[in-house]
Structures are given as structure tokens and as C-alpha cells.
Simulated scan of single mutants.
Amino acid sequence: MSFWNRLTSASNNTDSIVRKTAHQVVDEVIRSVKKNIELVLNSRQGCTLCAPDFGLKDFNDSTATTRSLSQAIITDIRSNIDRYEPRVKISRIEYIPDPYDVLQLNFRLTCIVLLKQKNELTELNIILDSANKKFRVT
């Protein structure tokens, strides 16, 4: 949950204090991590002056094979998540080809989400949607 969202929800709930369960807290953190990863992966490198390496490179290389392209994207995804999402420790990223939709790129990210009390092992699916050319994290 972003800082602004916490402020607005706190101002709306000034009459009563709501205690969240540990499961709700973990769900909120994972939702926030997914949202941040989507933001990072849908940004293009060089789009911000204060962090010129923020975002993914342009992968419009007509000479690249599917294997070399997927490896380049995996490397770039790993470096961006390592740099800009400190709540995640990546165990593995793998390319999952979809034989029914060759224009859609699917990656599986196995990671540990770092929490205060305990760490949560999770798998996130990163999908480059061919229709809108945006990454989705599910």
C-alpha cells in the first residue's frame, strides 16, 4: 500500500481503529509489491532523469532469437527488481512459452517477499500482454 493510500485511509477511519490480521497484512504487502513491479516493468529506461537506469530497455531487435530475447528480458527484469523493489529477494525467473499465443511473453518469478515478522515465499506471473504491450503481474 502506497504512502498516499495509507494517509487517505487513515483520515477516513479516524473514528475507529481497525486491526488487521497477519494474513491481511501479507496480502496488502504482496499487492503493493505487484503494483510496484508493474510500474517498474512498464517504464522505459531513460524515462526519468533522476534514475536513468529505471525501467526496461527497448527490446525491438529484429535479429534476436526468441531464446536470446527472453534471456535479455529476464536479465533486465532481475536487475530492475533487485534495484527498485527491495522487499523482494528473487530465487528464480523463467520464461514460460505459450504455444497458443506466441506474441504473449510469460515469465514466472519465484521470490521471497521480505516481511517484518516472517518472509513469504511466493510465485508471481509476469505477462507481457500483446494487446496493450503492458506487463501485468498476477
Rank of each mutant, 00 (worst) to 15 (best):
S2H: 05
F3Y: 15
F3Q: 13
F3K: 13
W4L: 15
S9M: 08
A10C: 05
S11C: 11
N13L: 10
T21F: 06
V25I: 14
V26H: 05
V29Q: 04
V29E: 03
I30M: 03
K34V: 02
K34A: 10
V40P: 02
L41I: 07
L41C: 03
S43T: 09
R44A: 03
C47M: 08
C47R: 10
A51E: 07
A51Y: 15
L56T: 02
F59G: 02
T65G: 07
L69K: 08
S70I: 04
S70A: 15
Q71Y: 09
I73R: 00
I73N: 00
I73V: 12
I74E: 10
R78Y: 05
S79G: 04
S79V: 04
N80M: 12
R83M: 15
V88D: 00
K89M: 08
S91N: 11
R92E: 01
I93M: 06
Y95I: 01
D98A: 06
P99I: 09
Y100A: 07
D101K: 14
Q104A: 11
Q104K: 14
L105V: 01
N106D: 11
N106E: 09
L109D: 00
T110N: 10
Q117L: 09
N119T: 02
L124K: 02
A131V: 09
A131I: 07
N132R: 08
R136D: 06
T138P: 05
